[in-house]
Amino acid sequence: MELIFLGTGAGAPSKGRNVTAIALTMLNERNSIWLFDCGEATQHQILRSSIKLSKLEKIFITHLHGDHIFGLPGLLSSRSFQGGETRLTVYGPVGIANYIRTSLAVSGTHLKYPLEIIEISDETVFEDADFKVICGELDHGIMSYGYRIEEADKTGALDAAGLAALGVKPGPIFKELKEGKMVTLEDGTVVDGSRFIGPTKKGRIIAIFGDTRAAPNELMIARDADVIVHEATFGAEMGDVACEYMHSTTIGAATLAKNAGAKRLIVTHISSRYNREDNRELVAECQSVFPNTEIATDFAIFEL
């Protein structure tokens, strides 16, 4: 599982950063990719990455400001041109369906794959046997959400060596034992599979935030996360400006990560007033509160 940052700027594209788009690749987990936000020129950024649109399964939109959605119609169209045939689901605030359908209709775009659009309001956005996605409303002057992605816990590894000592050979019987079942061997020996399963591996938790200033739901979304992705549009010295424009500072993002008991923080959505040389100072501000902080740049890849 990896996070690939396709755009890490705020408001408008700059020479150093494109606007917001983050890919969560889960090729080993479910052979698919999820995209969080789709700012202008996201499909151009994808051309410079390892991402294949045919693998795109879900798009989660945090809010309807242009720097988070202006790339969406073009990307949906290109996925069709490039042979995408599997269902694609887009989640987002009320209004996202009208935006997409109007854009496609006015441009005469016909998709060759089924497109599902879900306007979110409930706390649980998506859930299956492997993943659960929860959303929480933020504070940005426009409906803006943060998403909490929870991976299901994994059953512990089977103790193959211990079973071999009992004379149990690999084969279909291993599947039953892995499920914790009682299995009777040919010689009549009864083996309790649950005794040969290692500790459960806890699923990962990822919190990805839309634009916001400090909000009550932030802690719920971020609590005990393995990684938080949070905007830090402004440096610490611009706290009043950040609050006025309903954005966050480096210190605000780091304080959330600390209070949430998170393991890791990645800050993004950086104002164009800061250049690459400023990255070190912005990270240092975060690290003064939450040491395990990194700053995202376009095309940066973070393994989870």
Rank of each mutant, 00 (worst) to 15 (best):
242 A>H: 10
247 H>N: 04
278 D>N: 04
269 H>G: 01
246 M>N: 14
287 Q>G: 09
240 D>H: 01
223 R>A: 01
281 E>S: 10
285 E>M: 10
256 L>W: 10
282 L>E: 13
297 T>R: 00
281 E>R: 12
269 H>V: 04
266 I>F: 14
243 C>P: 01
223 R>E: 04
282 L>T: 14
253 A>D: 05
268 T>F: 06
223 R>Y: 08
232 A>I: 05
265 L>N: 14
268 T>C: 11
302 F>Y: 09
286 C>S: 13
267 V>H: 14
278 D>V: 07
268 T>D: 03
278 D>M: 08
291 P>I: 03
233 T>P: 03
240 D>K: 04
301 I>E: 14
281 E>Q: 05
282 L>G: 13
266 I>R: 04
258 K>E: 08
228 I>W: 01
236 A>T: 11
236 A>M: 13
263 K>H: 04
234 F>V: 11
250 T>N: 06
278 D>F: 01
237 E>P: 10
269 H>M: 05
261 G>K: 03
303 E>G: 05
223 R>T: 02
291 P>W: 01
302 F>R: 15
267 V>A: 05
225 A>I: 12
287 Q>E: 11
299 F>S: 15
237 E>H: 11
289 V>Y: 02
297 T>Q: 00
244 E>K: 11
295 I>M: 09
279 N>T: 14
255 T>I: 10
284 A>C: 03
291 P>N: 06
298 D>N: 12
226 D>N: 15
234 F>G: 03
252 G>W: 08
287 Q>P: 02
267 V>R: 07
230 H>K: 04
300 A>Q: 12
266 I>H: 07
256 L>V: 02
267 V>Q: 12
259 N>L: 02
255 T>Y: 12
294 E>C: 13
220 M>H: 15
259 N>A: 05
235 G>L: 14
242 A>V: 06
244 E>H: 07
301 I>Q: 02
304 L>E: 12
301 I>F: 06
275 N>A: 12
271 S>D: 15
298 D>W: 00
239 G>V: 11
273 R>G: 11
224 D>I: 01
248 S>E: 09
249 T>G: 06
294 E>S: 15
244 E>A: 14
235 G>C: 11
243 C>G: 00
260 A>G: 10
251 I>Q: 04
243 C>Y: 09
260 A>H: 13
279 N>L: 15
224 D>V: 06
248 S>Y: 00
295 I>A: 09
266 I>A: 04
302 F>V: 10
294 E>A: 13
278 D>Y: 08
300 A>R: 15
221 I>H: 13
292 N>C: 07
291 P>M: 01
303 E>W: 10
277 E>R: 15
279 N>S: 06
285 E>R: 15
293 T>R: 09
230 H>N: 11
245 Y>M: 00
269 H>K: 02
227 V>Y: 04
261 G>I: 07
284 A>R: 10
253 A>L: 05
264 R>E: 12
